[in-house]
Structures are given as C-alpha cells and as structure tokens.
C-alpha cells in the first residue's frame, strides 16, 4: 500500500480541523473591538463567511484525498496486539507511548536496512552470504545464531573427542549461550564465548593463570596468541556451516600445543624478538613468527 496518499489525507484532515477550530472560535467570540463602530455586523458576517469558505475548500480537499486512498485488500494481522481490544479500560495498559516508540524504531531499522543492503550489495568483499544464488535459496538456510543447546553440546563434545590433547568444559553462565573453557596440553588455556554456534569472543592465557572473559594475559606471548585467535575467528567465520567453522577453529587452536617447542618454518629458529612462533598458518597449521609469516 502506498504511504504517500495516506500522508496527504492525514495532513488534509489536520488542516480541516484547525480551520474549523478557527471558525468556531471567532463565532464564539462574537463582534470584537477591531471591527470598528460603523457596520460592524456586516464586517463580522463577511469574516465568518470567508472562514466558512476556507473550511468548505478544506473539506473538499479531504474528500478528494480520501477518494485517492485504496482500501486494504485483506484485514490487518495484528499478531498478539489484537488481544488488546479485550481489555476494556485503555488507561490501564499504558501501552500507547511504547507502541509509538517501537513503531518508530522498527521504521528506522527498516530504513537503515534498506540503505545497508544497497551499500553491501555493491561491495564484492562481503563475507556474509546475502546474495546467494537462486539454486542455493531453495535449501533451507540453517541459522547459526539460534541453535538448540543440545545441538551445540553435541558439536562441542564431538570436537573434544577428536582432539586428544585438548580438554573442554561447557558452562552456561548466561542462560543459553555457551562459554567454553579449553585447555590445550599444559601450554595454554582459553575461554571462548559462543552465540549459538558462532564464536563471539576468545581470550587465551597461560596454563596457570585464572580465566575470565575480560582480562588479558600477563604474558606477551599469550596476548599475541589472543590477537591471532581473533584473526582466526574471522578467517574461519562461515555462517552457513557453523559446525565446520567451529571445528576448524578448534583444530587451529589445538596446534598451539607445541607453541614453545616448535621452530619457525620461515627462519628455523625458536625465537625472534624474544618471542616464540605465535602464528599458525590457517590451512597447514605450520608455525611462523610474526615477522616471518608468508
């Protein structure tokens, strides 16, 4: 349904109402002093007549713009808000202002989404799968944000069994989303926050350090590894296949089992700038120094 004629009709009604109010006000006030002494009745009548003409014109506008409107084809589906009519006292709901606010909000979201979509569809570097081909569209898109908890558990325990040097424990401090405590050998510990099956945040720390989501490690090595892990999360980000994404990330993290004992593939040494090779190649999992990586 087009919104423009509706706006026009609403503003026409607004003008009509204000002009009617003006006419009735001057009628109610009667003859005023600024009409002068002689012939004041005629002046007053003329003024009233003018105002009524204006009102008449406005009424014609309103009728015209209503004529332009098309009645909606099907009844509005109001969802749960349809039940509101069952409440007889409207003051008790105090919903009106909130409804208006949320309406404005959704309206804005809609507008921004349109703009963002226009921008993103031009950008060829997009990592999200917005412009999937029609062949792919036929398959049901799996949501990776909204996964039932037991499915998440299943994926994670599978990964846990796959990687022998890695031990994993699942906690759910915030309702449904998993926070994972991982220890890799006796080398490092990591805490990973999930959103459904997508990795949201990771912190890597030393084996003897205490784990929490916000404080960084005391050691430079693990701060660097955390940084690289963030890069890896981005690299393995794959919403259509979240299990694969989590699995490849975990395999990558598992390769840090030999963080201190492996030499760099680039220079063949353990140390560079007093740091061990903190970078693992994403495909081959080969260790490199920050400065040596290809």
């Amino acid at each position: 349904m087009a919104v423009e004629p509706l706006y026009n009709a609403l503003s026409a009604i607004k003008t009509l109402r204000s002009n009617v109010a003006v006419a009735f006000e001057s009628l109610g006030n009667g003859i005023r002093s600024d009409h002068g002494e002689d012939g004041k009745e005629t002046k007053f009548l003329l003024e009233l007549q003018d105002q009524l003409t204006v009102v008449n014109n406005n009424l014609r506008d309103v009728e015209q713009s209503i004529g332009n409107l098309q009645p909606p084809h099907n009844p509005f589906s109001l969802g749960n808000s349809g039940y509101l009519s069952h409440e007889y006292s409207h003051d008790r709901q105090a919903l009106y202002s909130q409804l208006v606010l949320s309406y404005k909000w959704t309206d804005k979201v809609h507008e921004y989404c349109n703009l963002a979509h226009a921008q993103l569809s031009q950008n060829s570097l997009t990592r999200s799968y917005t412009n999937t081909a029609s062949a792919k569209r036929r398959r049901v898109q799996t949501s990776s944000h909204n996964v039932p908890p037991h499915a998440v558990d299943k994926v994670i325990t599978q990964i846990d069994r796959l990687l022998p040097e890695m031990s994993v424990s699942i906690t759910r401090p915030f309702a449904t989303n998993v926070v994972l405590h991982v220890s890799v050998g006796r080398v490092l510990r990591a805490i990973i926050a999930f959103k459904g099956l997508l990795i949201e945040w990771i912190i890597v720390k030393g084996f003897m350090e205490s784990l929490d989501l916000w404080t960084e490690s005391r050691f430079k090595v693990f701060r660097k590894v955390t940084e690289n892990a963030h890069a890896a999360v981005m690299r393995f980000y794959m919403p259509p296949m979240p299990e694969v994404s989590v699995k490849s990330f975990m395999t990558w993290l598992h390769s840090f089992n030999t963080l201190f004992s492996d030499t760099c593939k680039g220079c063949g040494l353990h140390l560079r700038n007093a740091m061990p090779p903190t970078w693992r190649e994403f495909r081959t999992l080969e260790p490199y120094h920050e400065e040596c990586k290809p």
Partner: peptide, 21 residues
C-alpha cells in the same frame, strides 16, 4: 626463566637458544 611456560620439557630448547644469544 621463561614465565609463560610451566613444563620445562616444552621450552628447554627455547631457553637454550635464548641463552646462546
């Protein structure tokens, strides 16, 4: 002392290289 590592076997080679430096 190499403080991030808690198991000597893992980082002995690394420490040796550092000391040779």
């Amino acid at each position: 002392e190499y403080r991030p590592c808690v198991v000597p076997a893992y980082c002995w080679e690394l420490i040796r290289e550092f000391m040779q430096g």
